[in-house]
Design a protein around this nucleic acid. Structure first.
Length: 930
RNA sequence: GCCCGGAUGGUGAAAUCGGUAGACACAAGGGACUUAAAAUCCCUCGGCCUAUGGCCAUGCGGGUUCGAUUCCCGCUCCGGGCACCA
C-alpha cells in the first residue's frame, strides 16, 4: 500500500466502485429486517451548506452502521424542488424557475455524490416533476370529495404597490421587501385541509412515539393546544343594534360572515363528513362557503379556559374583523379608522403578539350572563379572529394582557380569585398598586395583581368560596341551563390553508364552473401540468395564461376556468418518504412496497422542522392510511432532530434601506472590524443564525472537500459536536480531523509493512497487550452504544482516538502482541467505516486482502476481555475528593469501608473526628461525613 | 409576546442513572528533528494562593442532597419555531 494518505485518489475510486456495482441499491426482501434511514431532502437552493453535510453524514453513518449489523437498508435522496427562492432567482437572473431548479439539482447531486453517501440513487425524485405531483393532485381530489378539503376566506399579506401576496418572510418591519410599501391584510378565498379533524389523533399518537425526542413531542402538543374551557354567551344590550342581521358586505373588503369560523367539531378519522367544500356556490366571484356560521347576532360568544374568573369581567374585546366591530364602525368614523389601522401590518403571529396592545371602545354593551351588568365591548388588536370566537372576555385582575390593557385605558379591575388557603406563593405581577394611590378603580385585596393562578373565588355570587376547578364545572352547568353557554374543548391548531398565489408549485386540481361550482379534475385528466417555459415578472404567469386556465367543465362540458393557485410546498414534503418506496409506479401514488419499508426507521432533520413539516407529514400519513394507501399509523418511528449549523450574518444597507446580505466567506475581520474582502470597506454584523439562502450565510463545503477530501469533512462534522446540539460554524479543527486520518493511515501502513497476521483469537498475552486488549473491547462496546443508542458520534470518535493513542504506545513485536494489534486495527477501521468510508475501504483491504468493507460485519465486544482484577475508588470527606483507593473488583462493601477509613488520606482530613456517616457507592467512591 | 432548547478552559467539547469537572481535539507556548520550512514527535496548557499542599471554579441568584454540570425555583443572555422561508 501507499505510504501516504491520498484522499484525492482513493475517494473517487471508492465512489466509482459503489456506483458501478450499485452497492447501495435497495431491494425489498421480506427475509431480512429492514432499516429505512431517511434524511430530510434538501431544497435545491444552489449549493450545499454545512447543515446539509451534517444532516446527510449523520444519516449515512446510521445507514452504513445498520448495513453492517445485517439490516436491509434503504437510504434514498430527492429534491424538495418547488418553492419561493426559484421565483426570486428567476426575477433576479431572468431565467425560468424550472431551469434554475434543474441546474441546481444537477450541481447539488454532484456535491452529494462527492460526499460518498450510501444512497440508492435509482429512487431519486424531484417534487416539481409531473410524475411526482400528479399523485398529490390525485390525493387532493379524493380528499376534496371526502370533505377533508374546503374553501374559505383567509387573511394574507398584501403588497399594495406590487399588487402581490407576500410570504411572512418577505415582510420586513411591516413593509414589502421589494416595494417597501406598508403591507396590508387582505382576505382571499383559499383551500384548507381539515387537519383539525385529526387533532385528537395527532395529539394522542404522540404518546406512542417513544423514538421521538421529548422536546419535539412537547412542541407539537403545545401547538395542537387542546384546552378544556367554557363557551360563554354575553347577550347584546338593547342599545346595541342587535337584531340587525345585516352584516357588512364582503365587497367592502371586510371579512364577511363566511370568514367567521368557529372551531369545527372534531370528527373521527375516516368519517364521511358533510362535503362542505362541494357546497361552494358558483365559482369565480361567487359566494364562498366557509365553516357553518354559528353566529347568532343577539349574543356575543367568547371561549375561555378561566370561567372561574367570570365575575371579574370588566370588558369584552373583539377582533377588528369581528362582525360586531364592523357593525359598530358603520356609524363611528373614529372606530372605522381604528379598525382600518388594525388592517395594516403583517399577518404573522410573532408580529401581532409583539406589537403595542391597542383598543377602542365600540360604544356597544353586552350583559354579563350572571349579574346582568352592562359590560363595554372593545375592539382590540391583540384578539385574533382565527382563534376561538374572535372575542374574549377580559379579566384584568387575573390575566396579564388584560391587566396591561385595562391600566392603559383606565378600565376597572375587579379581583375575584384569591390564592388557596395556606398557599404562600405570591401572584405574579405588580405590587406597587398597594402603596401607591390607585390611578384606576381597583378593589381592595391583600395580594398582588394580576393573580393568574387558580385559587378560591370571592365576590362571585353563589360561587364564592369554591375552588377554581369546582366553579368552572358549576358555572358551566348554570350557563347551560340558562342557554348562555356550555363546556367545550378547543384546539389551538387551525386548519391548514394550502392555496398559494404563486407560480412555482403544484397546481391545485380544481376547475371552477359557473354552473357546477368547484369541480375536481377527473383522474384521467391528471396531472394538471405546470408549464415550465415561462417568463417571470410580478405575479404568477399561469394567472395570465389562458392556455393554462381555459378549460371545459368535466361535469357539464361548459366553458370553465382552472384554478391558478398552487399548493403550499409543505404538501410535497408531507408524503415523499412514502413515494421513495415506489418512485417508478405510474399507476398509483404508492403500492405494497410502501408497506414493506414504512414506517421510516430513522428520520433525521433539523430541529426547525419540529412542528410544521413533521406535523403535516404525520397528518398526511393518516390521510393516506384512511384512503387505504398505507397500513401504519405514523410515518416516522424514530426521529433525530439535529441542531442548526449557525453562522454570522453580514449585510450592507442600500440607499433605500434594504439589506444586502453578504456571505461570511466574502467577509474578513481586520483589526476587529468586519470588512468585505473585495473592497476592504466595513460591513454590518447581523445576528448569528441558521444557514439560509435568505440571509446568505450558508457556508459551502466544497472548498473543504476539495482541500482535504470528503472523509475529513465528514469526520470533522461528526467530531465537532453531538448531533442534537446547535453548532456555530468554524473550520477550526478541520486540520486535526485530517491529521487523525493521516495518523490512522500511517499506523495501518506500518503494521502492514511489518507483515499482516491473523487477528488475535486466544492464548496467553503479555500484561501490556492484555490491558490494551481490554481497552479495545471497552471501546468497541462504547462505540456501538454511542452509535446505536445514543446517536452521539463525537464521543465514539474520541474513544477511537484514545484507543489509537494507546496502540501507538503499545510496545512489543512478539506474535501475540502483533495479533492484538491486527485485531485492534481491523476493529478500528470497521468502526470508523460508517463515518469515513473511503479511507476505511482502502485500509481494510490492506489489512485483510479480499475483504469487502460494505459487507463486513460490525465488530463485537469480547466480554471476557473486559474483566478486571482491581478497580480504583475515589475517597471523599464531606463530599470533597481527598484520595484514591485500589481494591479488588469483587471486594465487599464493608471491606471497602474499612480499607477507606484506614487510608492515610481519610485519616488526615477526618482530623480525628468520628465518621457520622459513610456512603459507599460500589465501583465509584467512598464518602465519609464528619 | 408565546412555545421549545442551550450556556462548562483561549476554542469545539466530555462527564451516558445525582458520584474523580475539563476526556478527545483545536489554538497557543516551549523543545526535538531539519541548512531552512513544512510534516512528524515530545512537553506545558481553567483561575488564584503562603505551591510535593490548598482554595475557587460548569451563565447569575437561591434551594434539595452525604454529594449537583446533572434535580427544583427565580433571572440573564443566546439559538429554533410561531401556521406563506424550507
Amino acid at each position: 500500500m501507499d505510504a501516504h494518505y491520498h484522499p484525492e485518489i482513493i475517494e473517487p475510486e471508492a465512489q466509482q466502485h459503489w456506483e458501478e456495482k450499485q452497492i447501495f441499491r435497495a431491494v425489498e426482501d421480506p427475509a431480512r429486517p429492514k432499516y429505512y434511514c431517511l434524511s430530510m431532502f434538501p431544497y435545491p437552493s444552489g449549493k450545499l451548506h454545512m447543515g446539509h453535510v451534517r444532516n446527510y453524514t449523520i444519516g449515512d453513518v446510521l445507514a452504513r452502521y445498520h448495513r453492517m449489523k445485517g439490516f436491509n437498508v434503504l437510504q434514498p435522496m430527492g429534491w424538495d424542488a418547488f418553492g419561493l427562492p426559484a421565483e426570486n432567482a428567476a426575477i433576479a437572473n431572468d431565467v425560468a424557475p424550472a431551469g434554475w431548479t434543474y441546474a441546481n439539482i444537477d450541481y447539488m447531486r454532484g456535491q452529494l455524490k462527492r460526499l460518498g453517501l450510501a444512497i440508492d440513487w435509482s429512487r431519486e425524485l424531484a417534487t416539481c416533476k409531473p410524475d411526482y405531483y400528479r399523485w398529490e393532485q390525485w390525493l387532493f381530489t379524493r380528499l376534496f370529495e371526502k370533505g377533508l378539503i374546503y374553501k374559505k376566506m383567509a387573511t394574507v399579506n398584501w403588497d399594495p404597490v406590487d399588487c402581490t401576496v407576500l410570504a411572512n418572510e418577505q415582510v420586513i418591519d411591516g413593509r414589502g421587501w421589494r416595494s417597501g410599501a406598508l403591507v396590508e391584510k387582505r382576505d382571499i378565498p383559499m383551500y384548507f385541509f381539515r387537519i383539525t379533524s385529526y387533532a385528537e389523533e395527532l395529539l394522542s399518537e404522540l404518546d406512542h412515539l417513544p423514538g421521538w425526542p421529548e422536546r419535539v413531542k412537547t412542541m407539537q402538543r403545545n401547538w395542537i393546544g387542546k384546552s378544556f374551557g367554557v363557551e360563554i354567551h354575553f347577550p347584546l344590550s338593547p342599545n346595541s343594534p342587535q337584531g340587525s342581521t345585516t352584516l357588512p358586505s364582503p365587497a367592502s373588503g371586510a371579512r364577511g360572515e363566511f370568514g367567521m369560523h368557529g372551531i369545527p367539531p372534531s370528527q373521527p378519522a375516516g368519517d364521511a363528513s358533510p362535503a362542505v367544500g362541494r357546497e361552494a356556490g358558483a365559482g369565480g366571484e361567487g359566494r364562498i362557503q366557509g365553516e357553518p356560521s354559528s353566529q347568532d347576532s343577539s349574543v356575543l360568544k367568547v371561549f375561555t379556559t378561566r370561567a372561574d374568573t367570570l365575575f371579574g369581567v370588566t370588558y369584552v374585546a373583539v377582533a377588528a374583523e369581528h362582525p360586531l366591530a364592523q357593525q359598530a364602525a358603520a356609524g363611528n368614523p373614529a372606530l372605522a379608522a381604528f379598525i382600518n389601522e388594525c388592517k395594516q401590518g403583517s399577518v404573522a403571529e410573532a408580529d401581532l403578539a409583539t406589537m403595542e396592545k391597542k383598543g377602542m371602545d365600540t360604544g356597544l354593551k353586552v350583559y354579563h350572563p350572571f349579574t346582568n351588568e352592562a359590560v363595554p365591548v372593545f375592539v382590540a388588536n391583540y384578539v385574533l379572529m382565527g382563534y376561538g370566537e374572535g372575542a374574549v372576555m377580559a379579566v384584568p385582575a387575573h390575566d396579564e394582557r388584560d391587566f396591561a390593557f385595562a391600566k392603559k385605558y383606565g378600565l376597572p379591575i375587579k379581583a375575584v380569585i384569591r390564592p388557596p388557603e395556606g398557599d404562600t406563593r405570591n401572584g405574579k405581577g405588580e405590587t406597587e398598586n398597594r402603596s401607591q394611590p390607585d390611578t384606576f378603580p381597583i378593589s381592595h385585596f391583600p395580594f398582588p395583581l394580576p393573580y393568574v393562578e387558580y385559587g378560591t373565588l370571592f365576590d362571585s355570587g353563589d360561587f364564592s368560596g369554591r375552588t377554581s376547578a369546582e366553579a368552572i364545572d358549576a358555572m358551566a352547568l348554570v350557563l347551560k341551563n340558562l342557554k348562555l353557554g356550555e363546556k367545550r374543548t378547543t384546539f389551538r391548531l387551525r386548519d391548514w390553508g394550502i392555496s398559494r398565489q404563486r407560480y412555482w408549485g403544484c397546481p391545485i386540481p380544481i376547475i371552477h364552473c359557473p354552473t357546477c361550482g368547484d369541480v375536481p379534475v377527473p383522474d384521467e385528466q391528471l396531472p394538471v401540468v405546470l408549464p415550465e417555459d415561462v417568463k417571470i415578472d410580478v405575479g404568477s404567469p399561469i394567472k395570465k395564461m389562458p392556455s393554462f386556465y381555459q378549460c371545459a367543465c368535466p361535469k357539464c362540458g361548459g366553458p370553465a376556468e382552472r384554478e391558478t393557485d398552487t399548493m403550499d410546498t409543505f404538501v410535497e414534503s408531507s408524503w415523499y418518504y412514502a413515494r421513495y418506496a415506489c418512485p417508478n409506479n405510474t399507476t398509483a401514488m404508492v403500492d405494497e412496497r410502501a408497506n414493506y419499508w414504512l414506517p421510516v426507521d430513522q428520520y433525521i432533520g433539523g430541529i426547525e422542522h419540529a412542528i410544521l413539516h413533521l406535523l403535516y407529514a404525520r397528518f398526511f400519513h393518516k390521510l393516506m392510511r384512511d384512503v387505504g394507501l398505507v397500513t401504519s399509523n405514523e410515518p416516522f418511528a424514530n426521529l433525530l432532530t439535529q441542531g442548526m449549523v449557525i453562522a454570522d450574518t453580514y449585510f450592507r444597507e442600500a440607499g433605500d434601506g434594504k439589506k444586502q446580505w453578504i456571505n461570511p466567506a466574502d467577509v474578513e475581520i481586520r483589526d476587529g472590524v468586519a470588512v468585505l474582502k473585495a473592497d476592504g470597506q466595513p460591513v454590518r454584523v447581523g445576528g448569528t443564525e441558521k444557514m439560509s439562502k435568505s440571509k446568505n450565510n450558508g457556508v459551502d463545503p466544497q472548498a473543504l472537500i476539495d482541500q482535504y477530501g470528503a472523509d475529513t469533512a465528514r469526520l470533522f462534522m461528526m467530531f465537532a459536536a453531538p448531533p442534537e446540539q446547535s453548532l456555530e460554524w468554524s473550520d477550526a479543527g478541520v486540520e486535526g480531523a485530517n491529521r487523525f486520518l493521516r495518523r490512522l493511515w500511517k499506523a495501518v501502513h506500518e503494521h502492514v509493512e511489518a507483515g499482516i497476521t491473523e487477528a488475535y483469537s486466544g492464548g496467553e498475552l503479555p500484561a501490556a497487550a492484555k490491558d490494551f486488549r481490554r481497552q479495545l473491547h471497552q471501546t468497541i462496546a462504547k462505540v456501538t452504544d454511542d452509535i446505536e443508542r445514543r446517536k452521539q458520534f463525537n464521543t465514539a470518535i474520541a474513544a477511537i482516538m484514545e484507543l489509537m493513542n494507546a496502540l501507538a504506545k503499545l510496545e512489543g513485536a512478539d506474535p501475540a502482541t502483533r495479533a492484538v494489534k491486527q485485531e485492534a486495527l481491523e476493529a478500528v477501521v470497521l468502526m470508523l467505516s460508517p463515518i469515513v468510508p473511503h479511507i476505511c475501504r482502502t485500509l481494510i483491504k490492506a489489512l485483510k486482502p479480499g475483504t469487502c468493507m460494505v459487507g463486513s460485519p460490525w465488530p463485537a465486544a469480547d466480554e471476557s476481555a473486559l474483566e478486571r482484577d482491581e478497580i480504583e475508588l475515589m475517597l471523599q470527606v464531606n463530599g470533597k475528593l481527598r484520595g484514591k483507593l485500589r481494591v479488588a473488583a469483587d471486594a465487599a462493601k464493608d471491606a471497602i469501608e474499612a480499607a477507606a477509613l484506614a487510608s492515610p488520606e481519610l485519616q488526615k482530613f477526618m482530623e480525628g473526628k468520628p465518621a457520622k456517616k459513610v456512603v459507599v457507592v460500589p465501583g465509584r467512591l467512598v464518602n465519609v461525613v464528619v
